[in-house]
Computed example of a mutant assay.
Amino acid sequence: MIPNFGMGTFRLSGSSLTELVEQALEIGYQHIDTAQAYENEADVGKALSRSADRKIFITTKVWHEKLAYQDVLDSLRESCDRLQRDTLDLALIHWPSPNQEVPLQETLDALTEARERGLIRNFGLSNFTIKLMKQALQHVGAENILTNQIEVHPFMQNSKVTKACADLGVKVTAYLPLAKGAVVENKTLQRIAEEHNASPAQVAIAWELRKGFISIPSTTKESHLKDNFEAQKLKLSEEDMAEIKELDENDRIIDPSFAPDWD
């Protein structure tokens, strides 16, 4: 089972990331999320090698240029090497193949093979629309799709997709939970935070966890690592949840040219 809280590593790299991951593990993090496209798997791997005695859930993502059958297998072997792991806990299709250049079924078959070979224990999706998610489930079954990792934060609540995930039995992993820091400036989140003796960032994370999502905030500061971790203890009221629901503006931050047609 995937831990419901972890450390994201998007836009982080180098020795500073290695140190942050080490600090996160000391704090008690048990889930680290990375990706081939982040070009930081080796930096994460250095930290993991120094904590070999700890049980840590590792997620990586296969880049959309590596979705052909053999490319999936080869790239995941390379990811294992960089992360200094014989087996990775979870591999996601980072983005659907642009214009379906590589059939989704081919990529899913490759991930199934990767699991059979012991390269990965689980696989799943990232940035998948409802239509594409249903296609994936039709091919391999919901029991084989561990999660769909999508952008979710108070200003982009992605309600259609999160509801579809719940209906289809697919866990939501919410990336960019702090909206690149925008949650800190929001008056509603500031007020709720003050009432709970917390920070707006902690409120945003607690909101995701309360909704049953997996939250993977990233940060460049050790103090924020600790604050984010402590957000797991924050209990929001129904009134808090209702107020945060009203903040949704469908404000998507991550929308590259190769993204699918969003729901």
Rank of each mutant, 00 (worst) to 15 (best):
S51A: 14
L111I: 08
C165A: 10
E113Y: 13
L209D: 01
L83I: 06
W63G: 04
D227Q: 11
A52P: 06
I130L: 03
N250C: 11
L108C: 05
E243D: 15
W63M: 10
E208G: 13
K235V: 12
R115D: 08
L236S: 02
K131L: 15
Q23P: 11
H64G: 11
W207E: 03
K61V: 01
E19A: 15
R210C: 03
D255H: 14
N99M: 08
S237I: 05
F229Y: 15
E78C: 07
N127A: 10
G45L: 06
E39Y: 06
K131R: 15
C165R: 06
N122H: 11
Q202A: 14
L20V: 04
I93F: 05
S75C: 06
N148G: 05
V72W: 01
N99L: 12
G28E: 12
A24K: 03
T107M: 03
I244F: 05
L137H: 06
P177K: 13
G124F: 00
D53N: 14
H224F: 10
F229N: 05
L83E: 04
E116V: 11
G181Q: 13
V172E: 12
Q157L: 06
V62S: 00
I253V: 13
V21A: 03
S218C: 07
A174L: 06
K61R: 10
L189Y: 05
D33M: 07
R82C: 14
L67Q: 13
E19F: 13
V170H: 02
N127V: 06
G8Q: 02
A114S: 09
Q70R: 13
W262D: 00
N250P: 11
A179N: 14
N99S: 12
Q100K: 08
D86P: 11
A42L: 10
Y38N: 08
S16N: 12
S237D: 10
A198T: 02
L209P: 05
K171L: 15
N40T: 10
E26C: 11
P200M: 01
A259I: 08
V152N: 01
N158K: 11
N99V: 07
A166E: 15
P154C: 14
P260T: 15
N158T: 14
A110V: 10
V102W: 01
Q232N: 06
L48Q: 05
A24L: 04
I253M: 13
I253F: 12
S215T: 12
N4A: 04
K221Y: 15
K61I: 03
